[in-house]
Design a protein around this nucleic acid. Structure first.
Lengths: 200, 200
DNA sequence: TGGATTTTGTATCACTGATACAAAACTCTG
DNA sequence: CAGAGTTTTGTATCAGTGATACAAAATCCA
């Protein structure tokens, strides 16, 4: 008995969808509690009941971004045991950041002052690591790359995060050809460098 | 005649110093117009007279960051014509980001919703490019690296921005040794990879 | 000393995140 | 079927932010 509930898990998803949409279209400054609530057909306090506070909403966006990225990686063809396996992950990562630049920024930079992921949140949400680490490990075991697989994965992730940051900000190059060439050259060079046994 | 001026270029510098300090100590959310003005011994409208608006203040912080980074690069020993020249720039860049993590974020990510550098501002403020590009060009001419020097510089810059982003956020590694090893491994591998003539 | 002039800081606005609480919406009993 | 009882919701409000109009302050000169 009592007034029927409207602040359901379904409304939570609706709010999250609206937040993702506002973020993608008009950027972080458009994601205000009032704007999100109104566009979702409810009022601001619903966000606080369903997400705790605004940082909870941004956190949900953050996790959803990593879920989508994981789905993207899951569509990749099975690894063949060559460095091209890692190049495929790099390409998929880049495609994702070009299609979802604001979402990428929420995941890897901190456009919202109210939310910075704690290390454990980062690990939970980070689907990236395993895609990189698993392939790096296979390649190290196959003697195609040399060094610690986790170190290599962090290096590759560092490169792609940096290139994507520069590209989404418009500073990687003026033309698509410039950006393509720089992505490809850097990715191939890094893997080539990891392929050399520096202790040999 | 009239009331003596207080909103002088000296006060502008004072305000900028205060903003840099508040940013470094308490992060972007501590840089409010009131807090900066009070700490500088003036009132909020002075900021608007001297900087236009808050994004103007953040822009000044942005430029000051690149000035400091350029000074850091200027202290580097003269290039010797080996890939170690670029490794030295990479090390100096990393040192800078570890000593000024919030400032680095203002320069390369967008922690303030109100300010994103326009491409021409980025080029003006970017002392990074020439330090990387000049050395890359020398190494390409000396046949130590292969490819376009500007492309290589963008690739190296991408790597260091990404690694620094991850490190300042605490996601590059749990210990200093982890971070050191991953920086070194990635930097050396990338340069090693650029050293191979992929068209040969 | 007091008018004229320039500069400053206070008071205020719109908007944001956040929340208290009265109105709304429903169930069930007498 | 009226209305008490219960639960939920959205409105009204608060403090803090970026921004600005304008009265008060501070000076100079007649």
């Amino acid at each position: 008995m009592g007034r029927p509930r409207q602040r359901t898990p379904e409304l939570r998803e609706k709010i999250l969808d609206v937040a993702l949409d506002l973020l993608a279209v008009d950027g972080p400054s458009a994601v205000t509690t009032r704007a999100v609530a109104t566009a979702a057909g409810t009022s601001a306090p619903a966000i606080y009941e369903l997400f705790g506070d605004k940082s909870g909403l941004v956190r949900a966006v953050f996790f959803d971004g990593f879920r989508r990225l994981r789905d993207r990686f899951a569509e990749l063809p099975p690894p063949q045991g060559t460095p091209a396996d890692l190049l495929a992950v790099i390409d998929a990562f880049r495609d994702f950041t070009r299609e979802n630049p604001r979402l990428f920024e929420v995941m890897y930079t901190k456009p919202f002052a109210v939310y910075a992921p704690a290390p454990e949140e980062r690990e939970l949400g980070d689907a990236t690591r395993s895609a990189f680490v698993d392939r790096a490990r296979s390649l190290v075991q196959a003697d195609q790359l040399h060094g610690d697989a986790v170190d290599i994965a962090h290096g590759v992730l560092g490169l792609v995060v940096g290139l994507a940051t520069q590209e989404t900000a418009g500073f990687l190059g003026a033309t698509a050809e410039d950006c393509d060439r720089r992505w490809r050259g850097a990715a191939e060079s890094l893997l080539r460098g990891y392929g050399v046994d520096s202790n040999a």
